[in-house]
């Protein structure tokens, strides 16, 4: 395993689109070649070296390449986007589209991330120690094919539109979330350990949601069908089991209608 270290040297005037900051793009390159990789600032094509000091060595393949960014990337988008293997560690915050469309490997951000992290993710692991803004693991605007696989863990809280059009994979929000969870989803699992404001599972066809805190406003399309014991991400609890969204179409399997499941932690 080889490690490339990036140190931010300049704050971009506009947002810098760091779509080249992936183990796939770095693999097999020297620090000078890495510094020469492109990235947009507005409509102008810049180079990574314009904003980062590059040290260390990349591995021969993406899987052998670790990237460590030592510093703040609040104005850098698309870090780790479309990566297939290897790892990216950010000792700071990042801007939007962190790990968007990623297929494999691991991303660890020790600060906060902006919106659209893990958008249309297909595989791999994405961990954020701080908070995430909106659209965690959702579909691209207009698209009906959302997150298909992999795991997103936000150790802080998240905003709205989590897992929109989700088809597979797991999203874990360890603190609170705002509105619109798993809207239009047809698969996958969303676990929210804190409270949610509302609109949980609107127009959801299939898939699972767990809420360990409270839901302030329930969707009218959900119906309680029982109480179950479940272990969720290391926590054992009793949950009220709801099915829905009753206003949406649902597929049939072996003669039975498949609903989306909402497991809401039962009041103690």
């Amino acid at each position: 395993m080889a490690t490339v270290t990036l140190k931010p040297t300049k704050v971009p005037e506009l947002m810098f689109e760091g779509y080249s900051i992936t183990p796939d793009a770095f693999a097999g390159k020297t620090p000078a070649q890495i510094a020469d990789l492109p990235g947009h600032e507005g409509k102008i094509v810049m180079k990574l070296g314009d904003f980062f000091e590059v040290t260390g060595n990349a591995g021969d393949t993406a899987a052998d390449t670790n990237i460590v960014i030592n510093g703040d990337c609040t104005r850098v988008k698309y870090i780790g986007a479309r990566m297939t293997a290897g790892s990216v560690t950010v000792n700071g915050n990042t801007d939007m589209y962190l790990g968007g469309w990623m297929k494999g490997g691991k991303i660890h951000v020790k600060g906060n991330v902006d919106s659209f992290c893990g958008i249309q993710m297909q595989g791999g692991e994405l961990v954020v120690d701080g908070d995430a803004k909106n659209h965690v693991g959702c579909a691209y605007r207009g698209d009906w094919r959302g997150m298909k696989g992999g795991t997103i863990r936000i150790k802080g809280s998240a905003g709205n539109d989590i897992g929109t059009f989700m088809l597979g994979g797991t999203i874990i929000i360890e603190k609170d979330a705002f509105i619109h969870v798993s809207t239009h989803a047809e698969g996958g699992t969303v676990i929210i350990k804190g409270d949610v404001e509302g609109r949980v599972g609107g127009q959801m066809v299939k898939g699972d949601m767990y809420v360990l805190g409270k839901i302030k406003f329930m969707m009218p399309g959900y119906q309680k069908v029982g109480t179950v014991e479940k272990e969720v991400d290391g926590t054992k609890a009793t949950f009220d089991h709801y099915i829905g969204d009753l206003g949406e179409r649902h597929p049939k399997s072996k003669g039975e209608i498949i609903y989306a499941n909402l497991y809401l932690k039962a009041a103690a």
Binding site: H40, K43, Y140, R141, G142, D143
Partner: peptide, 14 residues
Amino acid sequence: LMRPEDKLLSGTCR
């Protein structure tokens, strides 16, 4: 208007 995703990967926009 209805299909922003049609533009996402259309490639040559930039």
